[in-house]
């Protein structure tokens, strides 16, 4: 069947089967940031946003996406690069394979939670596995990034 949806603010169409999962469709459409790590919703590598909410694209049927809005890392590249610099500064992007899915979820958290504490951050990102870092560098990067974001919004509010 043919589906139509918005991918990174552009209207796209794709020919999919009843059992086609979204992950492969997105990669075929050129969004190579979306990685497959486990196929069973355990690792977080394939995190994208559907209508603004984080979802694991390995477990979403493409047929159900018809008419919806999908965002991948390619769609928020500038914001990703900005947070990515914090991640890199802390050594949190070693092999980098988990980075796109992880960053998508961090940016989703930024939109959803106001001023999260360490426990809330850990809980929000519990589904994003990383094998290289041991997570400490990632948590440092998030906290520093969030602090800077808060200062920015603070300044904007004052202005």
């Amino acid at each position: 069947m043919e589906i139509q949806f918005t991918l990174n603010k552009k209207q796209v169409t794709a020919e999919v089967g009843a059992d086609t999962v979204l992950l492969g469709v997105l990669r075929d459409l050129g969004c190579k940031s979306v990685k497959c790590g486990c196929e069973t919703t355990n690792c977080g590598l394939c995190t994208v946003w559907i209508d603004g909410k984080s979802r694991l694209s390995c477990s979403v049927l493409a047929a159900g996406i018809d008419g919806h809005e999908v965002t991948t890392l390619e769609g928020v590249e500038e914001e990703a690069a900005e947070f990515g610099r914090f991640l890199a500064a802390e050594g949190g992007e070693q092999c980098g394979f988990c980075s796109p899915g992880f960053i998508m979820n961090v940016l989703a958290m930024k939109r959803e939670l106001e001023d999260p504490d360490l426990e809330e951050i850990k809980e929000y990102l519990a589904g994003n596995l990383c094998r290289c870092t041991g997570y400490m560098s990632q948590l440092r990067a998030i906290q520093k990034y969030m602090t800077v974001q808060k200062e920015k919004t603070g300044k904007e509010a004052q202005a």
Binding site: K32, R85, S99
Partner: peptide, 13 residues
Amino acid sequence: PKVDAEALVTGKA
């Protein structure tokens, strides 16, 4: 920063 960091964090192919 690692020389490949920018490519990794922006999900390049």
